[in-house]
């Protein structure tokens, strides 16, 4: 692909926005927070991030926000990912590799069912301080 300019970036964003607003406007978006601390990265958090991006795009679940954060203090279960889907309990998943990331999109975001074998804890409040 040829090198993109900021101008092209702006235009692409504008046209995508129009496309979006023509679809049904879902009120609240889902949030995915990926722990990118030293151990998270060493354990494959970047691969998990790429898998989320790819799977969400493929399935066109555009109303999603992905944020990265530093150490979640949960080294032993890295990569850790927090998922907040409106109307569902906030969940922390542990050992999220590429496969699990794709499962979270399919089962949790689309199917509205928790990926129980990877739940680290719920709700999150008392763990993340």
């Amino acid at each position: 692909m040829a090198k993109m300019t900021l101008e092209e970036l702006r235009n692409l964003r504008e046209s995508k926005k129009k496309e979006m607003s023509q679809r049904d406007g879902n009120d609240k978006s889902a949030q995915i927070i990926i722990g990118m601390g030293t151990c998270g990265i060493a354990a494959g958090a970047k691969e998990a991030f790429d898998a989320f991006l790819d799977e969400l795009n493929t399935r066109e679940i555009m109303d999603t926000k992905i944020t990265q954060t530093g150490c979640m203090g949960l080294c032993f279960s890295e990569p850790t990912v927090e998922v907040d889907v409106p109307g569902m309990p906030r969940v922390i998943y542990g050992n999220v590799d590429e496969k699990v990331a794709r499962r979270i999109v399919k089962e949790h975001l689309i199917g509205k069912a928790l990926v129980s074998d990877h739940i680290f804890d719920k709700p999150a409040a008392d763990i993340i301080k």
Binding site: M1, A2, M4, L6, R10, L53, N57, M62, K65
Partner: peptide, 27 residues
């Protein structure tokens, strides 16, 4: 990037931002 794309954590912005940096890296 924020000026061009808005909230950088939106899936759409993230995807476009990645393409932007990727194509500049390729160049």
């Amino acid at each position: 990037l924020t000026e061009a794309l808005g909230d950088l954590n939106d899936l759409e912005s993230l995807t476009l931002m990645k393409q932007f940096i990727e194509t500049n890296e390729e160049e």
